[in-house]
């Protein structure tokens, strides 16, 4: 755990009270019931409602805000700048991504510095966005993308990736296409799409015996639906290959279905910008 030397940290030995309460126990038994019907009333393959908006941060070159169910992520993109600490010339530009949970975003308070999980998610985000960006347009420069999760209601990485791709488009960074991302989870033989936090916790825990096919795991797939390409595939858990194949198909379809939502948002952004230009002219 990185130690934040510049801030006053709470005592290291503090334990969140939720460990001791009974409320926790009743919560853990609920998701098991969701094997047949999910807690929020969705079907297993239903995605949550998405709200996207661009241009939310005035100081950034491009920015976007996304709400997927309860999960809220804001992302900002800045102008290309010289790559710090680098001497050699590189023919392609670089993307520097930072993924961070706000300290108040999760049930357990996070520290202000990035910890190992967030650093890993930053790398995953970078790899998902790189195939979409025309990196040869800004050689020897780097574009900064900062994603901050304000409320973690599950699938925050997927939401952050979509938000970041929108923010990049809003910042007029040349791109090949939009990136959409969906997460899926397996528990026993049920597959859920677009997980909530409780479902994530459930899919991370293993059902008792692995030998009858008791899968459990989380999958996050980021894709360029306009080109039918997968830009990032991230799997954790213990799943057998047939379930993975099934998941890939379902996720690809889901990615394609989300694409119009994001596209519409961009169309609105362009129309708004045109309207503003007209008003300035008059």
């Amino acid at each position: 755990m990185p130690f934040d030397q510049k801030r006053i940290n709470g005592p290291e030995v503090s334990v969140p009270y939720s460990v001791y309460t009974d409320v926790n126990k009743s919560k853990s038994s609920k998701p098991k019931k969701s094997l047949h019907k999910r807690v929020d009333g969705r079907e297993h393959k239903d995605l949550r409602k998405i709200f996207v908006k661009t241009g939310v941060i005035s100081q950034a070159k491009g920015s976007a805000y996304i709400e997927v169910g309860i999960t809220k992520v804001v992302c900002s993109v800045f102008d290309p700048r010289e790559i710090p600490n680098k001497n050699e010339y590189s023919l392609q530009g670089e993307l520097f991504c930072e993924f961070k949970y706000a300290p108040f975003a999760c049930a357990k308070r996070r520290i202000h510095q990035q910890d190992a999980e967030e650093k890993e998610f930053s790398l995953v985000m970078q790899r998902s966005l790189e195939p979409a960006v025309c990196r040869q347009e800004f050689p020897n420069f780097q574009v900064d993308v900062y994603a901050l999760v304000l409320d973690n209601g599950g699938s925050s990485l997927a939401a952050a990736i979509m938000c970041a791709s929108l923010a990049l488009a809003d910042a007029s960074v040349p791109m090949f296409g939009l990136v959409t991302a969906v997460s899926a989870g397996f528990y026993k033989d049920t597959m859920f799409l677009d997980l909530t936090v409780e479902e994530e916790v459930l899919c991370n825990s293993a059902p008792a015996k692995p030998n009858p096919p008791n899968n459990h795991g989380l999958i996050m797939q980021a894709a360029l639906p306009q080109h039918d390409q997968i830009s990032e595939f991230f799997l954790v858990g213990s799943i057998n290959i047939d379930c993975i194949k099934q998941a890939i198909e379902t996720l690809t379809v889901a990615n394609k279905n989300i694409c119009p939502v994001v596209q519409q948002c961009l169309v609105k952004t362009v129309l708004r910008a045109l309207k503003r230009k007209e008003q300035e002219k008059n």
Binding site: R127, E130, L224, F233, I241, I244, I248, T252
Partner: peptide, 22 residues
């Protein structure tokens, strides 16, 4: 050893088609 997959990570800056991934 029993053929189940516990983690998949894609590294690198390229992208793949779904059929290739499978």
């Amino acid at each position: 050893p029993n053929g189940r997959i516990t983690s998949v990570v894609k590294t690198g800056y390229g992208s793949l088609q779904p059929s290739t991934l499978v």
